[in-house]
Design a protein around this nucleic acid. Structure first.
Lengths: 346, 346
DNA sequence: ATGAAAGCGCTAACAC
DNA sequence: GTGTTAGCGCTTTCAT
């Protein structure tokens, strides 16, 4: 009869009873083992073991006023850039004895709000957020979250921390690389120039060109988006140009776009990659290294962004009085592969 | 001076005081509004609003014995198959008034254990888990979790629920499709046949062939893995075969493998895809639709797996007494694109 | 070094 | 309908 009926998880007083001590002592064993006599400590630990006691974090947090949980609202979990951030944040949290749980806002404002609220109600110690692009309707304000919050991948207002990639530098690195390998007639291929990252990458590329004092020129080709088929359109357009008008280097605003360009030029004997045309992408997307001609690309510093953001958040949590908000910009990294330089050249 | 010093989040008794009622009434407003007079309800809600009161879920769960949180330990968040599961689970949970938070086990046993423990200590209502392949060392047992747990993507023992994709059927659908479009000489291209999914897909394909009573034959080509470069190797191998020996249809164990095959045959005028050779992949990976020749593929039912698993878990949570464990196998879906049939044929 | 007891913020009887 | 009150499982003074 009812053999499962009273299967209540063991509590601290069960442990205390079994070890012949008080709950206060058991608590000390968990939180300040150094203040407990080693023989008592052993007895208690044995009781914990035997009972399979698992402390209740909710109760701990309630009583202690603490919480060692960080909530991370991620914009798009299918994008490895954001998953890298999560990994970085997890590592940093571990070091501080904290944990990170994730929620996928999935590019939807409603879900972003839902999870912000959830974490708020769960009284997590702090929140990491990669916000939707719409900076105006900033959900994390209206959400009424009064706790610690660090923004990733988007510049935040002065009153909170944020960590962003340096897209301008990334564009610069991409273009300078092309220039360094001898390219003089560049094209910046992009789409969605309304997006800050794209615009910044373009600015960076322009800066690299400007530094050459006219030795190099660059024009812009605008596509409807950043997907491979947009790239293929661009590629076909380039192939149709008169020889004099053809570029010898392309900075694509994203890897998938670069991939399309490379794909569409695959058969062309007059526009060989990388001999006649060097292509560099952006993001270090899986597509960039799975491609038949591996793409030279600019790797987003996702991992470092996650690490840094978690570090800032934890500082804010631990030292609210002395914490100063910072806005960190992290360098991306150029990764040279076969689409910009012949194998022998690397 | 210290203007931030007493910034304590408002509690229920603050609301009660402000609305001129007792905490019990405020609690009722939150949990059983129908039992509260509408005028009182208004007053309390206004007070909640004015104070910006956010109920504390930890305290609620502690007092109520409930918790409306589900923890999902995900194997690999960079794989959209698993993210689809998360989406499905989220939706289903929403319907039941619950929420899902994610943790990335990242293919590492240690992280799987860590997060299982975390959710255990957080006393979530239940756990969804996509376990590591190593079925022997089943972490979710040693973790000592005594609560509700549903396994996704891997068959579980009889004493818990699990939801898996029907890989055998997927292999069958892929091969039958090739047969239906007139292919008679098939190749099953795979790698890592030790993995149950790969082995099952092969079995399914063999069943489709067997049904033809000898009208169709199929051989197996083994690669070192499932990545594009393995596919390229296989593709080159096929191209080198004597015409009599060449297949007219390929079932690849994964999209990335299929992608490599397609890539390596791109220039070959004697083995045109899909005219001379039909290729079908597996997974409906992004690579399958971003490819220049869009891949016919078998779509994993990630979303449905997540939905179903969440539904089972919630049933287990809500009706522990009457709940019966089930093992659900969900059909994948064939998606026909250009790599198996000419555009006109679709 | 250990025990006793007062909460942490909320829910759920139970009384009125 | 609404108020009162005893916990939920733990931490943390304060005694001893």
């Amino acid at each position: 009869m009812g053999e499962e009926s009273d299967r209540r998880p063991p509590r601290m007083d069960d442990v205390a009873k079994r070890a012949g001590v008080s709950v206060g002592t058991v608590s000390h064993v968990l939180n300040h083992p150094e203040r407990v006599a080693s023989r008592t400590l052993d007895r208690v630990n044995r009781a914990i073991e035997e009972l399979g006691f698992v402390p209740d974090r909710r109760a701990r947090a309630l009583a202690g006023g603490s919480s060692a949980l960080i909530g991370f609202v991620v914009l798009d979990l299918t994008n490895s850039y954001f998953v890298d951030m999560a990994r970085g944040a997890e590592e940093e949290a571990q070091l501080a004895g904290m944990n990170v749980v994730l929620a996928n806002s999935d590019l939807q404002a409603a879900k972003e709000l839902t999870y912000l609220h959830l974490f708020d109600e769960e009284r997590v110690a702090g929140i990491l957020l990669t916000p939707l692009a719409r900076r105006d309707e900033q959900a994390w304000r209206s959400a009424g979250w009064r706790g610690e919050l660090v923004i990733l991948n988007t510049e935040a207002e002065p009153d909170r921390c944020s960590v962003v990639p340096d897209d301008e530098l990334g564009g610069y690195l991409a273009a300078r690389h092309l220039i360094e390998v001898g390219r003089r007639n560049l094209v910046f291929a992009g789409g969605l120039f309304g997006l800050a990252p794209v615009a910044n990458r373009l600015r960076g590329a322009e800066r690299a060109v400007a530094e050459t004092n006219g030795a190099v020129r660059m024009s812009t080709v605008v596509a409807g988006g950043l997907r491979p088929h947009h790239g293929r359109e661009i590629g076909r357009g380039l192939a149709e140009r008169s020889p004099a008008d053809r570029p010898d280097g392309v900075v694509a605003a994203a890897d998938l776009l670069a991939l399309g360009i490379v794909q569409s030029l695959a058969g062309d004997p007059t526009l060989r990659i990388p001999d006649d045309l060097s292509v560099v992408g952006y993001d270090n997307n899986q597509a960039s290294w799975e491609s038949e001609i591996p793409l030279t690309t600019v790797a987003q510093p996702g991992h470092a962004i996650g690490q840094t953001a978690a570090r800032l958040l934890i500082d804010e949590i631990r030292h609210p009085a002395t914490h100063l908000h910072q806005h960190v910009r992290i360098d991306p990294q150029l990764i040279v592969r076969g689409s910009s330089v012949p194998a022998s050249g690397r």
